[in-house]
Amino acid sequence: MGDVRNGIATRAGAMLLAPVGWLANVFDAPLRMLQRRTGSNGMAVFFLAPNMLVFGIFVLFPLVINILYSMTGGGALFLGDRTFVGADQYGRLFSCGSYLDPKSCTEDLFWIAVWNTLTFVVLQVAMMVAVALVTALVLNRELRARSFWRAVFFFPVLLSPVVVGLIWRWILQRQGLLNLMVFEAGGTPVNWLVERNWAFAATIMVSVWAHVGFYALILLAGLQAIPKDLYEAAEMDGTRPMRVFWRITLPLLAPNLLVVLVLTLIRAVQIFDEVYVLTGGGPGTSTLFLTQYIYEVGFASLLRNPGLASAASILMGAVLVVLTLIQLGIARRNEQRGKTR
């Protein structure tokens, strides 16, 4: 954060604050009265209140009643109007002839979404970590204009998922740029978003394209934190570059790689926006993922079932909690290792 402390940022911050500056004086008199009653230290509660109020109403409370929701049935929206059904919604999600065959399940769409998401997570995470690692290694070399090249890979990260989805829909459409290239190369054009396997591959490619710059950046920071003298020592010993990579770079980058791996996992499990715009879950159900299932069961379909959507979201939440705990565990271990080093 230290190098961000410079002129432009300070000026931007000052400009943001200037027009509302007079608010300070308006609020000061009543707040002084409040302070007289609470004492200086008691004002902490006042400063915390707005954030915690929003947080309580829009995060904590929904989280708690989500569990109640998942145990109710019917189409009513408000919890008071809903009938208690116990674990029926979970029972419905899990009633299955064979979990490997979604067609044998009562909620076949849920299991289709589960298997699609699982396949997506495995393939996308592997590809994301691999591409991010290669990009970080390339960016870590002695380059002219490194910040330019870093920006190149970072560009799509800022684009909105809707824009990402539409950019690629335009390129992958029947008469799009990709088919033009295939055509020029003498191949037969493919209807990329209409053929099941190609559409699935497209969701992976597009999500990697959109986010890889972010993870490459984290890995690059990790690479640059590796002490240079290690490489100098290896060079003096005449160690071959590949050996340097396996023996120095990779082991020292491992903590960052782990962070990237878990972060990618957490994001991949929740994949929705880009895919929804790109394929809409289609063709058929071949790119239907969990969040879209929750969205459609809870809001979009004619046979809305908020209880079922809620139960599915809690199952997904449980997976995410486990992944996040692993992430926090890693972060803590890295921190401690950093202190002892």
């Binding site: 929904p62 009643i65 809001f299």
Partner: peptide, 14 residues
């Protein structure tokens, strides 16, 4: 740990 997709339904009712 609580992404939006986990609390969609109750948040909508709130």
């Amino acid at each position: 740990m609580v992404p939006l997709s986990v609390i969609l339904v109750p948040l909508y009712s709130v």
